[in-house]
Design a protein around this nucleic acid. Structure first.
Lengths: 194, 194
DNA sequence: TAAAAAAGAATGAACGTTCATTTTTATTCA
DNA sequence: TGAATAAAAATGAACGTTCATTCTTTTTTA
């Protein structure tokens, strides 16, 4: 059992090192030997846990995407009214992007480059289903505009990535006031006018 | 004059090759020899036009960003009313992201990875000034919500990047109806309610 | 005919990955 | 319980390849 324990620690260390190095230097400048060095492991050891570099980065992506969606839906239940449920999910996601911004940055990089295999990308999307279901409920009830889920995502959730990135670059501080303003902007853009 | 002419053609070919290869394979998998081959030039020749790979990609970024902002503001003048001016700029940008999507994809990749030097990044931002001025006018007139320009950008312009990327992946078709819906969402999110 | 532009071949460094060993762990038997 | 041993995990060195860049030579231009 101690052996398995140790293995999981090493795997976690490798994934953590991958995230940090890719965030700071990009995928192209992140070599297997640098990942190994940061995880305090031999380069050869990586290949006991992952088939190759592509597999390592794919698995890292899926793992981080999982953390993201788990966090997003943790306090949400399907019984909640549409508007309240949306606010809860939106604010959890905002929270995640602020508090776990190393994860959010990694996802932003993955989502805007060809570094992730298409299959792994789709694997990561699956867990957003509760949000899509909420939107379907909202459209049926005439609370949310009857437009594509891609548009809804683009105007509510995705802006948070831009804001997180701007903050990371030091151009902008996303404090509690800004978060509330951002939420109002998000909700304004998709709610059916009274 | 023929010599200079030829030089500009080669430079353009190198920049076009860089955009295409980076879009398809990412910065990490785009080698100088592949760029040279696609531009029908010797690898050594690249170094007559650019100091090194980083310089090549920085200059490509600035050039593409210039095309983007030139296009965005082409039909806009400062005399226009706020709402009309915003609609014109927004729709020009939407147009650019749809019609010149190879440029838009390249910018999305640059803006979400560490592949561009910070100085080149800031060089590229400068040309957005007319939009910032328009927003200042709109805030003064009580037409646009008095919130940070980063929030305004995040909720109006940036969603177009996400939609363009979704379309590029084949998940979504951004037709004229969707563009109009997206514009309404954008404007709803930043206008002061009546 | 001199200068500028371009070329292909060559460079050392760094890459991802594999290989031959060594170290660690778990199991077996006294 | 403790030495013997087999299996698993981990290693550092080495592999062939590819990289960005430079060097020397050739071609083109003025």
């Amino acid at each position: 059992m101690a052996a398995l324990q140790k293995s999981i620690e090493k795997r976690n260390a490798l994934i953590a090192a991958t995230i940090e190095l890719v965030n700071n230097n990009g995928f192209h400048a992140t070599s297997m030997s640098k990942i190994a060095h940061m995880a305090q492991v031999s380069p050869a050891t990586i290949y006991l846990y992952f088939a190759n570099k592509q597999d390592l980065v794919n698995k890292t992506y899926i793992e981080v995407k999982g953390k993201y969606t788990d966090y997003a839906f943790e306090t949400y239940t399907e019984k909640m009214p549409v508007a309240a449920g949306f606010e809860i999910i939106w604010k959890r996601i905002a929270d995640f992007k602020l508090k776990e911004c190393k994860y959010a940055m990694f996802l932003a990089q993955c989502d805007n480059t060809p570094m992730i295999d298409e299959t792994s990308r789709q694997e990561g999307i699956k867990h957003l289903q509760p949000l899509l279901d909420l939107w379907a409920r909202g459209k049926d009830a005439g609370i949310i505009k009857p437009i594509s889920d891609y548009l809804l995502y683009a105007y509510t959730i995705n802006p948070l990535s831009f804001l997180m990135m701007s903050e990371k670059r030091g151009a902008f501080k996303l404090d509690a006031t800004h978060v509330e303003e951002a939420y109002q902007a998000a909700w304004s853009s998709i709610k059916v006018p009274a």
